[in-house]
Amino acid sequence: MPSLETRIGELRLRNPVMTASGTFGYGQEYAEFVDLNRLGAVVVKGISLEPMQGNPVPRVVETPCGMLNAIGLQNVGLKAFLNEKLPFLRQFDTRVIVNILGNSVKDYVRLCQHLSDAGVDAIELNVSCPNVKKGGIAFGTDAAELGRLVESVRKASSVPLITKLSPNVGDVALFARVAAEAGTDAVSLINTLVGMVIDTVTRRPKLSNITGGLSGPAIRPVAVRMVWEVHRKTGLPIIGMGGIMTTEDALEFILAGASAVAVGTANFVNPGASVEIVDGLERYLAKARVSSVRELVGAVRT
């Protein structure tokens, strides 16, 4: 049987399929639809030190082959996550990766200390949420700030560190390189692209936040290109994401250079999508007589 096992730096995964942060709640929401034991990892909704309320509605609007969201990072906060959400996820035989966000380097450092102590499997730094005014995005679009943040956070974390990069920059490989030099173990590519939809009857934006993050199949070619570029220029381990709906979509990312993939918006359409992709990858490897999925990472013939 072909091997689906993969690695993100030091982090070993049973298979390369994860759920993307913000699209899978804290795992509990989908536990009755999906066998969480079959996933390579669950990446939970972004956590901040204190609970966050998020933006007013409308927070979501559908777009051609995709959707815009401006949730505004509503989350239960670190304490409730550790006490109420993490124990549930620990019942399953899957990796738990915690996405974190803050307004300052200090916030991120404290989150990393607590989560390292709690023994989560990895931490994903959210420096790319386009829907909040402060923090997050400021680190993701300023290379010097990003380097400073990753360096501090690296020292505070005893678990693998993944930096989720913003696609809303000119040269994404530059940011990947900065994060790597500052000590990140891997990068997630890509977060949502900033977009906007206007209601022509009311002449108002359809989202209360005016702009939002575009996700779904509409952004996939952009995401695949960015993964390919970062893989080629840095060789960093990459978790590829952006509109993955099917096994073929996941394979595109792997061939472009992703060591693992995350399924996001597809969860909303088909909660079983991630597990179907695990099965599909296994079938693909068997049919193509490839012994390990790792042989396909970056194997696009250009």
């Binding site: 699209t23 929401e29 909704k45 998020g54 927070r59 979501v60 969201n69 909303f268």
Partner: peptide, 9 residues
């Protein structure tokens, strides 16, 4: 979007 409480939309 999701109908199950995951996306918080």
């Amino acid at each position: 979007a999701c109908g199950v409480g995951a996306c918080m939309g």
